[in-house]
Amino acid sequence: MLAKYSSTAAATLPFTGEPDGVTCAEKKARPVAAMLKIAKYVLYDILRNRIVLGYAAFLFVAALTFFNLEGDGSKSLMSLLNIVLIVAPLVSVIFSTIHFYNSYEFIELLVAQPVSRRTILGAEYAGVGGALVAAFLFGIGLPVAVFAPDARGFTLLVVGVLLTLVFVSLAFLAAVLTRDKARGIGLALLLWFCFSILYDGLVLVLLFAFSDYPLEKPTLVLTFLNPVDLSRILMLLQLDVSALMGYTGAVFNEFLGSTLGVALAYGCLALWVLLPMIWAERVFRKKDL
């Protein structure tokens, strides 16, 4: 276990398995330092191909348009929410997968260097995730800070950032699982399609099929299993339109209206960021390159 924490021991050290006289804190600090160094190059590479800059500009223009058309009320935030729920995951998932495959040379180069695979994957994640989150915070965050600097706007930003990270994680998982670029992108798109479109349809079918039974609790559980739905509900509760959701909405309101419920919901979103990434790291560590 400890070996992987010593990934950046100086080149001049004789190889002893573990460099002597290195404290535990230093061991943890070094991969982070190496990770940030590599992430710097990943970020540099991303900025050169301008796609993320275009994405930021698009979000910025869209947000400004909505706020100008519909004022700073819940209505424009609702419109923005739809962009956040559809566009942010889609762009994140496609961009991350393509970037990962295009970085194959870079990754190959690094695995022959004294850095651990975990550090390499972490650096890729930090670079890609950081760039997409920065683009989101610029494109949506800036207009929101001007037009809706309140709890609603803040929730939209938090949800958007988390959702971006969730789909970067899913994209990395898809890219690590398949060697073939076309298949990897296909798998990543399929994941997006499932969570954004298919899942709701399936839930509806289930609700119709079992409409004779009380379904509030199962619906709540089903919502937690889909990061996009979870984000939508979290935002809708802020916008006070949950009354439109009928009795189920009341259950959501009761559960997610409490501090514990909201904490659980955000915790669940965080798990959606972490779990695919942990899985991806496990696969990547054993992968032949």
């Binding site: 460099p19 190959e108 022959a112």
Partner: peptide
């Protein structure tokens, strides 16, 4: 991973970013 600090590798086909 540390031992790789002491290895120099020249691949068959050098692929770089």
């Amino acid at each position: 991973d540390t031992y790789r600090a002491r290895i120099g590798y020249m691949p068959q086909i050098g692929r770089y970013p």
